[in-house]
C-alpha cells in the first residue's frame, strides 16, 4: 500500500476552526499542496487578512504575518520589497479584499507587486455573522440585507477578476470554483500557476476562489455547494481573465 493522498507538509497539524463544509479549509489544503509541490514552504511568507481566515497564520506551516483588515496587499508589498527572493502571498476574504481593502488590492496589482493573492469569494461577511458584502448577490438575504440585497440601494456584485483584468501590472488572474472534484483539480492548477508566475517574477497574480458559507447562507454544506454551482458561477463566471505569455 502506498500513500497517495496525505497531509501536506505546508499545513500545521492544527484542526481548522471553520464551519462544516466551509471552503476555506479546502482552499488552505490546495495552497499547502502547491507550496509542497513547488518546494517553496521554506521560502513562503503568507499574510493573513481579517475574517474567518484570520487564523490562517495558525494553519499554514510557513512564516506568516497577520494584517489589519483590508491591508494584506500593502503588508505583502512591504515584505516582498524586503525579501524579493521569497514567495509572498496573501489570503483574503471578500469583505477584506473587495470592500475595505479594494484600494490596496488595485494599487498592489497596478504596481505589479510580485505577490500572489488568494481571494476567497463567498459573497458574505462570515466571521462577523453574515453581513452583506460587495460580492453579495442581488436578492441574497444577509443579516444586513434582510429583505435581500437591493441593487438600487446597495449596488451590484463587485467582479474582482473582471475589474483587475485591465490592470497591466497583473501577470496572471483567474477565477475558479471548488464546488466539485473536477473544479477542485482545475482550481488547484490555477493556484499553482499563480505561484509559478510569482516565482518567474512576471508580476502580480491573483486567484479568485468561489466559496461556500453554509452557516451564514443558512444552507446545508451540500446545498451551499449547489448554490455556488447554480447561482454564483452565473454571476461570477470562471476563467482566466489575464495571463501574460510565459
Amino acid at each position: 500500500m502506498r500513500l497517495i493522498k496525505g497531509y501536506p507538509v505546508s499545513l500545521k497539524e492544527k484542526e481548522f476552526h471553520y464551519c462544516p463544509g466551509c471552503t476555506h479549509g479546502l482552499a488552505h489544503r490546495l495552497i499547502a499542496e502547491v507550496l509542497d509541490e513547488l518546494e517553496i514552504r521554506e521560502e513562503a511568507i503568507g499574510v493573513a487578512s481579517v475574517g474567518c481566515s484570520v487564523l490562517a497564520y495558525e494553519y499554514f506551516n510557513c512564516d506568516m504575518q497577520q494584517a489589519a483588515h483590508g491591508r494584506a496587499p500593502a503588508v505583502a508589498t512591504g515584505i516582498k520589497r524586503v525579501h524579493p527572493d521569497k514567495v509572498v502571498f496573501t489570503y483574503q476574504g471578500d469583505g477584506d479584499l473587495a470592500s475595505i481593502g479594494l484600494a490596496e488590492l488595485i494599487h498592489a496589482a497596478n504596481r505589479g507587486e510580485k505577490i500572489t493573492v488568494i481571494f476567497i469569494n463567498n459573497a458574505i461577511y462570515g466571521m462577523t455573522g453574515g453581513q452583506m458584502a460587495p460580492t453579495t448577490l442581488p436578492g441574497q438575504r444577509t443579516s444586513t440585507s434582510p429583505a435581500g440585497r437591493s441593487s438600487s440601494e446597495t449596488g451590484f456584485p463587485l467582479k474582482i477578476a473582471e475589474l483587475l483584468s485591465t490592470v497591466e501590472g497583473v501577470a496572471y488572474l483567474a477565477r475558479v470554483s471548488l464546488h466539485d472534484p473536477a473544479h477542485i483539480v482545475e482550481g488547484k492548477r490555477a493556484i499553482k500557476t499563480a505561484f509559478e508566475y510569482q516565482l518567474a517574477g512576471r508580476g502580480f497574480s491573483l486567484v479568485e476562489i468561489l466559496a461556500a458559507c453554509p452557516t451564514n447562507w443558512g444552507m446545508t454544506p451540500l446545498k451551499a455547494l449547489e448554490f455556488v454551482r447554480d447561482e454564483m458561477l452565473k454571476v461570477y463566471p470562471k476563467g482566466v481573465y489575464r495571463r501574460l505569455e510565459k
Binding site: 504575518q65 489589519a68 503588508v75 508589498t77 512591504g78 515584505i79 520589497r81 524586503v82 490596496e104
Partner: peptide
C-alpha cells in the same frame, strides 16, 4: 501597513 510588513 507596508511599514508593518517590512518591519515584520
Amino acid at each position: 501597513n507596508m511599514v508593518y510588513g517590512a518591519a515584520g
